[in-house]
Design a protein around this nucleic acid. Structure first.
Lengths: 241, 241
DNA sequence: GCAAAAGTGTTGGTCATACACCCATGC
DNA sequence: GCATGGGTGTATGACCAACACTTTTGC
């Protein structure tokens, strides 16, 4: 493996985490102390990214960066778009930042998103923090746009493939599943109708166990069977002219 | 504008055209005569692409390449994925080709697709040809994979947004519309049900005119009103758990 | 015993599917 | 006048939306 970095190609990671209430984004704090008094210090938030190694596949690069951030392997990921306009670096902070790190001024960023239940990330690092998707702080570069695109793509995906389960632990309750949908799509769903529909799916398998302790009345747990899903769901083409 | 090319970043264009029977892909013939007798000549087909200029936006680059190919502006396009693995260049022909053109061996290709009615392209150039999507010839590089990805993305898009109309002229018959769906999704649709559904959409507007000459009984023409679509269709969230 | 979340059924309307024949025109 | 593609209606079942109360537990 050739570990030299390609100077003008990077990968950015949008990490979506679900905490049984909200979809969140994992962001890194970007700090730069200015010794030149004409400029104020930089202290804002950014997505995590890095340059691609000379002999590394794009997917490998995404996996490596994600692992550096969370310590995790084997998480669902998807490349959703590449951002590479020359005017990506709009504001003063960003150009100062780039100057200080000595990087090519025109970088293409191949963007990936990752889906996981947020509790499996162990936030040792003080510079890393979850933000609810609809309450993001000030971000550097074009990262607001990147996140907005990621969310759009995610919504599409959620409505056509069973990726929602990536947000949940192996065993989950139907209410957790519903909350995940509501949070991603930013809609409200009728609880009774949702339940009926979910129970009617053979690939959402009821377990004997119940979740105790967390709430008052213990709730039945379910699991998602990808196996059954693939065997039964031959992709129904609901055409929406 | 800085017209120097970025050596390791290119844009590839997948052009989808509909000819009232099939979805087709526009390909360029790639020819290279080998003077070294150990190698046979190259004569196969590829997508059209080019390197991105130093100060060019990715979208601009795609538009420029597409215009060079077809002479057309203002066609629906979408960036759908970036291909940049170091092992993209698998076979001998491809490496010979690259050697002969003196290009960086690891190129990221940002891929776009374009949608249009194929008759609006004027095929002056002998090296350009339409191929039905399900009867592609031998292709260079990883272009088979690129086309397969483009088609997958297109199917998704067609089922959730009114992009199908990009394949049709301004005025079209319902049977043409049906054929476009069938061809993209590779399915059969019941004609009567399709018609009922289409006619019930307010944004598919019947015209007084009829298409004459082409077939026996003249068919009523329709147009798509994006205006009405946007005003009436507040994105129905049909959740497919 | 009460607060909190889990769980449950019915009805009416809409929409998808299945299916076969007549119509208008060009040649 | 006949071949070709255009155009039409109905019955059935599936699914979706709307809606409020009872159950089980922890404290």
């Amino acid at each position: 493996m050739d570990f030299r970095k390609i100077s003008n190609i990077s990968v950015d990671c949008v990490v979506f985490g679900f905490d049984n209430a909200n979809i969140n984004i994992l962001l890194s704090n970007r700090k730069l102390k200015m010794h030149d008094l004409r400029y104020s210090d930089i202290d804002d938030w950014v997505l995590t990214g890095d340059h691609v190694f000379k002999s590394e596949r794009l997917d490998e690069s995404a996996t490596r960066i994600f692992k550096g951030l969370t310590g995790l392997d084997d998480v669902y990921k998807k490349q959703f778009r590449t951002f590479g306009n020359p005017d990506r670096i709009k504001n003063e902070k960003d150009s100062l930042w780039l100057k200080s790190s000595g990087v090519d001024p025109r970088v293409m960023s191949v963007a990936y998103y990752f889906l996981l239940p947020s509790e499996i990330v162990d936030l040792r690092d003080e510079n890393i923090k979850w933000f609810p998707i609809r309450e993001l702080p000030q971000l550097g570069f074009d990262h607001h746009e990147i996140i907005a695109c990621a969310l759009e793509d995610l919504k599409q995906k959620v409505m056509s493939e069973p990726v929602i389960f990536e947000f949940l632990p192996d065993k989950f309750t139907l209410n957790e599943l519903q909350l995940a949908y509501e949070s991603v799509l930013n809609i409200e769903i009728d609880n009774r109708n949702f339940r009926k529909k979910a129970i009617s799916k053979t690939y959402i398998v009821p377990l004997e166990e119940k979740r105790v302790g967390i709430s008052k009345k213990p709730a039945r747990l379910f699991m998602f069977s990808r196996d059954i899903y693939e065997k039964t769901c031959s992709r129904n083409h609901i055409i929406n002219i």
